[in-house]
């Protein structure tokens, strides 16, 4: 069951983003930014918790999940260390994703050469 929910929820988010991609002149980078900010907002309004339980990876794998992760990190850190937590929580919670992308991305630049499209 969790696979089915992950599939249709994750797929639906992508399909909705496709509307933005096709119907507006928004560049892909902007859509990514919009998704992350949307995730943070949804998370702040507490919409996300039940949603993530229901959809599993369908809610966390899309970039809105990244926004959720950031906000959740900030909130937990605020609970723990107050004002300072505002500046700690976000990047701590998202550290794996960001570090992995940067490190693997860098390593890829050592191994792979740019390739022509055909």
């Amino acid at each position: 069951m969790d696979y089915i929910n992950a599939f249709w929820v994750g797929g639906l988010i992508c399909a909705l983003a496709q509307i933005l991609l096709d119907k507006t002149k928004l560049m892909p980078g902007r859509i990514m930014v919009i998704l992350v900010c949307t995730g943070a907002v949804l998370s702040a309004f507490r919409v996300y918790d039940g949603f993530a339980d229901f959809a599993g990876a369908g809610a966390t794998v899309p970039l809105i999940g990244f926004g959720h992760l950031l906000y959740q990190g900030v909130r937990d850190a605020v609970d723990e260390s107050g004002l300072l937590g505002l500046f700690m929580g976000g990047l701590t919670a998202s550290a794996t994703g960001i570090s992995a992308a940067l490190i693997f991305g860098y390593l890829a630049s050592l191994i792979f050469r740019p390739k022509m499209k055909d």
Partner: peptide, 18 residues
């Protein structure tokens, strides 16, 4: 082929880095 299908997941973020 997939458009937003590969843009929206975290894999799209990784692609934009690599």
């Amino acid at each position: 082929f997939a458009g937003a299908g590969t843009l929206v997941p975290i894999t799209g973020f990784a692609n934009s880095v690599a």
